[in-house]
Amino acid sequence: MSGSTIETLRRMANQIARNFEIMGHVDAVEATADHINMFWDPRMKKQIFGDGGQDLSPIAKAAIEELAQGEIPAHQTRATEFNAVDDIGQSDAG
């Protein structure tokens, strides 16, 4: 069931989108794009950009399209804001 890499990526993108859905379509697209932009390795991004939006939910699809066009979304949650070079403020210790 682990499936191929691209299946995993689609599942990840859909899952992110699904959890942001409650924000409403427009915000959810931005949040999904921002999240993927900040946390995914470039190869993962490239692979899903080249996948033609197959099996993606509308939110995930729109987010991937936005990123594929080279748009850099603004930060939508504090999880994608990080400390500046001289900042102590945040930690995302897991």
Binding site: D41, A79, G89, S91, D92, A93
Partner: peptide, 27 residues
């Protein structure tokens, strides 16, 4: 490369994400 990860991934990474989003810092 930045291919570095840690076993915190398999235990408390959601703490990082969740508390940082709500409180601004996760510890």
């Amino acid at each position: 490369s930045n291919n570095v990860d840690t076993c915190a991934r398999v235990c408390h990474s959601p703490t990082g994400y969740g508390l940082k989003t709500t409180f601004g810092t996760s510890a």
